[in-house]
Each structure stands twice: as structure tokens, then as C-alpha cells.
Write a protein that binds this DNA or RNA. Structure first.
Lengths: 205, 205
DNA sequence: TGTACATCAGTGAACGCGCGTTCACTGATGTAC
DNA sequence: TGTACATCAGTGAACGCGCGTTCACTGATGTAC
């Protein structure tokens, strides 16, 4: 990082990045505006040139998280061919990969307690992320006979719930509550069994 | 509650209860020792007659949570007959019922950030809760041919993950991220599909 | 190219606040005789 | 039954701290002429 003078140049993003690092290290509780400012090498008051306050700063981090999330899942979906099933699987992997690679974002999005309806932008970004997963689920569900096909929203809610559960319970490094299996395996096998239950994977592997 | 004099009589538990109410209302972040004391009608300093400090108070709430949790799941297991399958289902229902009826405890246990290894008591209580679910899963898994049977720990981790995911994403009243379905239905259908994938429920219901 | 000036992005001091924690204390309770 | 005393469970004042936020300010940058 080049030495800076009185003006920072890109303080807004530097503050978001600092916040993400702090959230990642100390959890949503441990994060403070003052410390984020200090980490970015700036006075707390400077934050107010770019954000309305503490909440607004976290919200921006979450927003960026949703954007990255959507992008990753979309990319996985696009390149996950050839089949609907393989695309769906790629999307699931992308979910876990995101939680792994962007823990600060993930926490800001799902554990910081900020409402997704805080701003239209945020609500929109969140809806888009959901939409990617749901589209993938919808297409996959076409392979199930219509009379036994669960609604796409339910299907994707199941997947989301299991993914989130694996991340929260087994992927985070909480001391003492470690996974008996790598989270990737846990999620992969869990979703595999689930898909088998829908008849999307042959019964005896 | 009877009017009290200088001595409270049952302050320790009153503090735990006050904490649980606060946690429930404001989340793990919103909880403060001072306010818990005030809610219990007592000076903050009085807390130190019964707990080592703030963390210790939360840990006690979590501990009691694990005990209730274990008890409820155990009871569901015991009375959930006649089959291993029905017992397993009852245990799953008990999970969600617990999260519903004791949200303060649930948050203290899983979202407050206190480590389960904080004290041997707490670690033990947590292990016992896990054990109930795992036992139920193990017995149910006996109905799967051995060569296709997943390890019990994995099986129960899947169930736990989906349950926790449903609670976190769809059961909590976070404004704007509401469930498209009642959480009970979501969990029931999700686990149903999962069990079908293991061949524990006939394929076409 | 040089100067005047508006705009912008930061500083630094100050604020009020509620937090967790400590301490010497005191009122209430229980027990010994 | 009454008194002395030890023990216990609270009070209330005080602390240092870091927080989020505000304000008047000033240094740096960009633009007009």
C-alpha cells in the first residue's frame, strides 16, 4: 500500500475492507466503527464522510457480499454444465466456497443482524442471490414427474437450509464444536442423499 | 411475583431468566449484564454474588438450554414409538419445538459465541444433547443395508444441519427474510425427502 | 504559467453514554447460648 | 424468649474505558481566469 497524504484516495472501500477483516476475526459483535477507522488508518470521524454510521457501513459490506455471492453462484451455474444436475451441484459447491473464501461477507450477510430490507439495494441484491439458486433448482426439478415434484421455492429452501446449517455448525472454526467430517463432504453427501430422495439420482449410486 | 425485601431469595435464577428474555428480544448483541440486573430488579454489582461476570451468566443460560434440549429430545425419543422411524421423527419435531419455545436458550447456545468448551459442565451438556440425536439416528440407520449405510455421525450431522438451517433462515422472525412455508413443513418435508434418499421411506409415499 | 478561490476529505477535540467491574458498606437472616 | 454475633446478599458510589457521533477546523485538490 503506497504511503498516503492527507487524502486517502479510496477510503470508502478501504473502510469496507477493514470492516470485513474485523468481522471475520472477531465476529459481528467484535466489530466497531472506531476500530474499522483505525485499521484503515483514519480518524473515526472520517467515516462519516462516506457512511451514515456504523450500521450503514456493515450494510455496505453485506451488499458487496450479496453481489459477490450472486456472481459466484451465477458463474458456477453458467459453467456447471452439461446437465441440469451438474449445474445444480456446481451451484451448491459455490455456496460453500463463498462461505469459505469470504467469511467476513458471509457473517455480515447472515449473522450481523442487519435486515435485508434496510435499503432497496440490499433487498434487491439478496433477492438476486436467492433467484440464482431457485432457478437452478427449478430446472432440476423439471426432471421429476410433475405429480411428485415439490415446489421450487421449497426445494431451494431445503438446499439453502442444509448449506447454511453446515456452514454455521461445522464450517466455522468454533473451538470444540468441530466437524467429524470436512464440511464439503458433509454437504455433498447430504445433498446427494436428498437428491436421491427426489429420484434425481439413481437409488444405488 | 411476591414483593421482595432486601434479599431476593432466588436471584441467581432470576438473573438467568432476565438474560434469556433480553437475549430473545434483542439478540445476543443486545444483551448486557447491567440490563439483566435491572430487569431482575437488582444492582449490577449484585450479579457478582452469583456469577463471575457477563460471560459466565450467558454460559449458565446456555447450559440450562442444553439440559432442557436434551430432556425434550430424550422424551420425544422415549415416547415416539412404535418404530425407529417414528421415534426419529419425534426427535426432529422436538428440535424445532425447542427452538420455537425457547428462543433465548437457543440463541445462547448457538449464536452467542460462547464456546462449548468453556467449562466441562457445558461441554458435557452439549455432548449429551448430541448423543440423543445420534442414538436415534444410529438405530434408524440399522434399517439400511450395511453396505449403503452412512456413518451415524454423518447421518445425524445432516439432520442437525438442516434443522439448524431451517431455524436460522426461516424460523426466526427476521423482517424481510420470511419463509415461503411454515418452518415445520419445511423441515418435515426436507427430512422426509432425505430419508427417502436413504431408502428409509418408500419411494412413492 | 500563475494566482484566487471553491470544494472536498480529512483532523482532533469534545460530548454524553452505558458498559463491566471493584469496593467498602449495610441491612437481613440464621444460629448459639 | 431474648440477645450477641457471624454470615450472607444486597446497595450505591465510583472507576476507567471505548463507543458512536458532532463540530469547527484545516490541509489538499481541482478549476476558472
Amino acid at each position: 500500500m503506497p504511503k498516503r497524504g492527507y487524502h486517502h484516495g479510496n477510503l470508502r472501500q478501504a473502510l469496507v475492507d477493514a470492516s470485513l477483516t474485523l468481522i471475520e476475526e472477531r465476529g459481528p459483535t467484535g466489530f466497531t466503527l472506531s476500530e474499522a477507522a483505525k485499521t484503515a488508518g483514519v480518524t473515526p470521524a472520517a467515516v462519516y464522510r462516506h457512511f451514515e454510521g456504523r450500521e450503514d457501513l456493515i450494510a455496505e459490506a453485506a451488499l458487496q457480499g450479496y453481489e459477490i455471492f450472486t456472481e459466484l453462484m451465477q458463474h458456477a451455474y453458467d459453467t456447471g454444465g452439461p446437465s441440469d444436475l451438474s449445474r445444480f451441484g456446481a451451484t451448491g459447491h459455490a455456496y460453500l466456497a463463498f462461505a469459505r473464501k469470504f467469511p467476513g461477507h458471509y457473517i455480515a450477510m447472515f449473522e450481523s443482524g442487519i435486515s435485508v430490507n434496510r435499503t432497496p439495494d440490499l433487498a434487491n441484491a439478496s433477492a438476486q442471490a436467492r433467484a440464482v439458486l431457485e432457478r437452478s433448482a427449478t430446472e432440476l426439478a423439471q426432471h421429476i414427474p410433475a405429480d411428485r415434484r415439490p415446489p421450487a421455492a421449497m426445494f431451494s429452501a431445503h438446499i439453502w437450509a442444509m448449506s447454511h446449517g453446515v456452514v454455521e455448525l461445522f464450517s466455522r472454526g468454533q473451538p470444540g464444536r468441530q466437524s467429524p467430517y470436512p464440511p464439503e463432504d458433509l454437504l455433498e453427501s447430504g445433498i446427494g442423499i436428498y437428491l436421491r430422495g427426489l429420484g434425481l439420482i439413481p437409488q444405488d449410486k
